[in-house]
Design a protein around this nucleic acid. Sequence first.
DNA 1: TGCTTAGCAATACAAGTGTATCAAAAAAAA
DNA 2: TTTTTTTTGATACACTTGTATTGCTAAGCA
Lengths: 197, 197
Amino acid sequence: MPKIVNHEERREHLAEAVWRIIRREGLEGVSVRSVAEEAGMSLGSLRHYFDSQSALLAFSMRLVAERIKKRIQSLPQDGDPREHIETLIGQIVPLDEERLAESQIWMAFSTFALTEPDLRPLSREIHDSLRDVFRKIFETLDQSQLLKPGLDSELEAKRFHALVDGLVVHGVIASEVISAEEIAGIIERHLDSLLEP
Amino acid sequence: MPKIVNHEERREHLAEAVWRIIRREGLEGVSVRSVAEEAGMSLGSLRHYFDSQSALLAFSMRLVAERIKKRIQSLPQDGDPREHIETLIGQIVPLDEERLAESQIWMAFSTFALTEPDLRPLSREIHDSLRDVFRKIFETLDQSQLLKPGLDSELEAKRFHALVDGLVVHGVIASEVISAEEIAGIIERHLDSLLEP
DNA sequence: TGCTTAGCAATACAAGTGTATCAAAAAAAA
DNA sequence: TTTTTTTTGATACACTTGTATTGCTAAGCA
């Protein structure tokens, strides 16, 4: 047998190189050569792990989504429901550098996927799974009677989802103008308007 | 003197070709050659009107922003304030094909501008001018005492702005999943929660 | 009628693109 | 040590990219 190499680890290493290039130069800067160089390996090595550029991109996109997903799923469910929601949203919205990085990558991929048939299904899948997270939040709130009376939980889930993604976009394209505190404040205010005191 | 040609008209013609390519293939598909072909002219002609590709892109980006801006500014100010706000938001959010096209182009440009120093200031300018629109809306509402008591109009302007841009993004990346009626419904609901009955 | 010049078309060029191929290197198994 | 097979690196190929250059065309003024 040849050199022992953790295949999956190498693939993630390459995906992370893709992320760095996206943040620095945008998705236009992601070529197989630039990724190989960024990851410190040769073109041939890269092609050994990914048959094509689009396979590399799809893997990179899926990986960032899975990291966020896992972080959300590993959150403790107990305790105050409102606090749980706030920490959950805190995993999505660009409140710190890591979250900002993920937001930038998500936005780049989402835009790219609009005209890339190979990536569209994956983009939709990510969007839908986040939508389900919001749905579940409001279902639970509704059942626990924590929502203010008369609210349509399905509609509120969509409204909250749009607000959060809007904050993500604003955090990315106007990070110098909107602060983490403001983002957190807007979410606070929104929850105030939805939940029973 | 040579052939009489409306310079500005030609430039807009080229910008519109850029838009069509963005919608069809994304910004990656926008090369000087593809734009020239889409506009039905030669490479040399295009370069006669734009010294460089980035000048072409900047012009195209600015033009779409100005079209939206003009549409908003030409709205009649009289009548019911709430109705005015709804028609104003209706100029931004992808409720029909034309608005969807503009949203796609806006998203592509905004993402591209993140890593393009030439375009970043323009992107920020567009963002800021929309932020000012929202600010003004809530200032006016506040002065007319149409807002529910106890609301921070500055914060509410930011929240509304984020919600609207979130709806734009959702309308673009999940147009098959979210309908125009749903988008309109979410805005209705949001205004209900803000305005005095 | 000739002249000037904006507008246009064609070609060239260096650089970068994704992909394919193929041989060398390295390490476990014989 | 020899064999085997994954991993790696180099090179090549066809193509596209942005830009530059060059000369032709056509229209209005003198």
